[in-house]
Design a protein around this nucleic acid. Structure first.
Lengths: 254, 254
DNA sequence: TTCTTTATTATGCGCAAGCATAATAATAAA
DNA sequence: TTTATTATTATGCTTGCGCATAATAAAGAA
């Protein structure tokens, strides 16, 4: 039992830890307050666009300190549900959910998460000069070398996604020697190039001949494509296009 | 200037607000600490999988209180960059970025954000009994009524996205009278049905006859589709499928 | 040796207090 | 009436303190 909880017990009634819980709105953790506020919003008690009571009022109601209320409201604000500003008070956001958090896949985990056996297959691995398009994407010089890797991610021996990747050998020269039969390029880079940031894009594309062959689908079928540029210390390290097999969907709960 | 900042100035040197900034690592806001920690991770000083110094050590280094360091680290933890546990310490997450935060569009804003003029067009609006598929999606009875609305979102008088929407009239009966020429179904629901939660999915689909006609593309072209079920108080209120014009992509920075 | 008990440690959490700051409202000066 | 000045207010942020808790390590008993 926590100190403040003890204090309350003493102040109010010798056995009243339970009484407090049952007879008042005393909420003593910021998690509980967060949940309570959330459910009031969802129940329509506090409607989108309106201002909810001040931290001090809530602190009084929940019988806790302002700091605790503040922490709960800040968490909801970070999630985009509340809009808080000095003097202005705390508003329920009008368009409460505008953000979806999508898992960016480490494909092996994605496949295994579906209960399938993962296997990856290197189709082609070639050291070459970058094409102009790739040079632009990775902002490279004309006379540097890149690694071009095509591979196939399999789930239970069925094609799951076809990968087309370019790796900047200036930044990760060791990649040339990487044994991609043991570990996928994705995971090799994760383990050998430290922290990464980058841009991701999703779009739909009609399968070309190459994609159709590798994924075992008809040409022209609509494929879900993930494109990603990864940077380390501001230098582009790899550009990937991931063509998922037809029917693939990604989903999330708001 | 803040109190603690004043204090430091006095303690160290009369004019040393700048000296402090330049000669020590004194960081006094949790934002600054967050940025510093982030850049150390990105610079590879603290590598993925390793444990970073304790709150107390960092507080000593940054010359601030443990609470402030804690707040910064908690924020990074909420973003999925750090993994924190009692006694275990604070670890840099191995797969540092597994989440992409995508904006879920209010299409008018999305279009206007591109500098285009938005217009929406109702193609069909019909009160009817739900099809079995829709009944399952919205978990409805067989004898209730739903509104089926097809509409087109235009950007600069070009088709931008084709919308196929089902609305549960049990939950929002007023929707039957909504004037969708003045306000899109999406925004009407946002304004009239309070807080909403739901599921979103993205996938690729070959354009059918209907989609091709409305978007002005060929049948079979790959379309990027967003599917969304919105709930209010746990009751499904609407099911939408949004077919974007060919070439549409959504992107985000990790 | 093995099992149990007892520190130790780093984060988790809450409180009270106080100053900082942005936005607004009230008031005074022009 | 308009403009500048001065409260007022609600959140933002930091501090110092102390207890709670989970995971581990060390010490002791079987």
């Amino acid at each position: 039992m926590r100190k403040h909880n003890n204090k309350k017990t003493v102040v109010n009634c010798t056995f009243s830890r339970y009484l407090i819980v049952m007879t008042s709105k005393s909420l003593n953790s910021w998690h509980e307050i967060q949940d309570e506020v959330l459910s009031r919003i969802q129940a329509g008690i506090w409607k989108p666009g309106t201002i909810i009571p001040t931290e001090n009022d809530l602190a009084r109601e929940f019988e806790c300190s302002r700091a605790t209320v503040s922490r709960a409201l800040n968490a909801l604000s970070a999630d985009g549900l509340l809009d808080r500003r000095r003097k202005g008070g705390t508003k329920v956001n009008l368009n409460p959910v505008r953000k979806a958090t999508l898992p960016i896949p480490v494909i092996r985990e994605e496949v295994e998460g579906r209960g399938c056996t993962y296997r990856s297959l290197v189709i082609e691995k070639e050291k070459r000069k970058p094409s102009p398009a790739i040079r632009a994407q990775l902002s490279l010089d004309a006379d540097c070398f890149v690694m071009h890797v095509k591979s196939l991610h399999m789930a239970d021996n069925q094609p799951y996604a076809f990968e087309d990747r370019w790796v900047n050998l200036d930044v990760v020269p060791d990649f040339e020697q990487a044994d991609l039969t043991k570990i996928s390029a994705n995971e090799w880079l994760l383990q050998n190039s430290g922290f990464s940031a980058g841009d991701v894009a999703f779009y739909a594309l009609n399968a070309g001949q190459q994609e159709a062959e590798n994924l075992g689908c008809r040409e022209g079928e609509a494929l879900f494509v993930l494109e990603r540029i990864t940077q380390v210390n501001g230098k582009a390290i790899t550009f990937v296009r991931l063509f998922y097999r037809p029917g693939h969907r990604i989903s999330t709960t708001l």
